[in-house]
Amino acid sequence: MRVRPTIAFHCISALLTGLLALACSGASQVRAQVEPRQPIQIRFAFDRPIDAGAAPVLLASASGLFGSEGLAVATEIAGGSADAIARVASGAADFALADINELIRFRGKSDAPQVKAVFVLYNQSPYAIVARKSRGIHALSDIEGKTLGVAEGDLSIRLWPALAKRNGIKVANVKQNRIGAAVREPMLSAGQVDAVTGFSYLSAVNLRDRGVPADDLAVLRFADYGCEAYGFAVIVNPAFAARSPEAVKGFVRALIAGTHLAIKQPARAVDEVISRMDGGSRDLELERLQTLIAGNILTAEVRRYGIGGVDPARLDRSIAEVGEDFKFGKRPSAADIFDDSFLPPPDGRLIN
């Protein structure tokens, strides 16, 4: 039986077309494997101007740790934790480093967007009262009858009622002098107030830099007097987290690695910090970072369970502490504040 030429032609043509399509498909797959994927753009907000507290994030960026997770991180400066949280809630920023206690107040409003923390960098809050021993203050109980300088926008004073109650101190017996943040340390240095509220790694280090003898400073850390508050944490926009969960996990992994580096190589970390500051002191920021690591990041809890997570029961108790000075529209639960689903397993978060 003879095959018509047209039929043979169509068969051969179909075969060649199929082979060509297969070749093109294979070539496309090869190109996809060779060509790198475009990194995911991340907008990250610090809640305050750069200092040593930003070291883990800056080191993660400078060391290519974010890049290795397929992320391109651009940073910006917000005007405090409330502003940083608002930026994340609105989608103006994808992530931010903010005070988790301010997040608790934010989520305590009945209509608040469901912003959550996904990584706790400061296992203990840096809140402290910094006092002059020469003014008769050696322990927290000595604060009664004294004048406490409180800077505008200071967050530590918000937990002072809970701390005073826990330690049997009458708040009414401590005079509060509202002052500008810029004059907080100068006023204490000059003896115009007996003590100030602030962060242990900021005010105490600043005072020593101003020439106040270290042995005349009493740094009364809230954590040493029973305050269970966590400190600064990474928060994420809920829509971004739902859309790109792997990016959130990658960001957290990179930050853990950056924190490892900051602990092991503090001098290198401070070099990155100083490169982003305008006229910063390397020695001052190195002391600040070492104070921060020892007192707030590398705590006994972190050494045992790993960095980044929370104890839900402790977080719930800290929410109650916030409630001593804040009226909740709806009291948030620990699950409203922290989402642990983006964390690596505990053995991937241990810091040696």
Rank of each mutant, 00 (worst) to 15 (best):
V3H: 14
R4Q: 12
P5T: 08
P5G: 13
T6L: 15
T6C: 12
H10P: 01
I12Y: 13
I12G: 05
A14Q: 07
G18P: 05
V30S: 05
R31L: 15
V34C: 11
P36N: 01
P39W: 07
Q41T: 14
F46R: 04
D47M: 08
R48M: 15
I50K: 09
D51K: 08
G53I: 06
A54L: 03
A55D: 02
P56G: 00
S61T: 07
A62V: 07
G64W: 07
S68G: 12
E69V: 03
T75Q: 12
G79R: 14
A82S: 09
D83Q: 10
A84N: 05
I85E: 02
A86W: 03
A86G: 14
A96W: 03
I104Y: 00
F106K: 12
G108L: 04
A112H: 02
P113Y: 02
Q114E: 12
V115R: 00
F119Y: 03
F119S: 00
I129Q: 06
V130P: 00
R135T: 12
I137C: 07
L140M: 02
L140A: 06
L148P: 13
G153M: 13
S156Y: 04
L159K: 11
P161Y: 05
L163I: 04
R166M: 15
V171R: 14
A172M: 11
I179R: 11
P186H: 08
M187E: 13
S189D: 12
Q192A: 06
A195W: 09
G198W: 05
G198S: 02
L202M: 11
L207A: 00
R208F: 04
R210Y: 02
V212L: 14
V212R: 09
A214C: 02
D215T: 08
L217V: 07
G226D: 05
C227D: 15
G231I: 06
F232Y: 15
A233D: 13
V234R: 03
N237L: 05
R243G: 10
S244N: 12
S244M: 10
F251L: 14
A257V: 08
H260Q: 11
Q265S: 09
P266N: 07
P266A: 05
A267F: 01
R268K: 15
E272I: 00
L284T: 10
L284I: 03
E287C: 10
R288L: 14
N296P: 15
L298W: 13
R304I: 11
R304P: 08
R304W: 15
G309W: 10
A313F: 01
R314E: 04
R314Q: 13
R317L: 13
I319Q: 10
I319A: 10
E321V: 09
F326M: 09
F326E: 03
F328V: 06
R331M: 13
P332R: 05
F338T: 01
S341P: 00
L343F: 00
R349I: 01
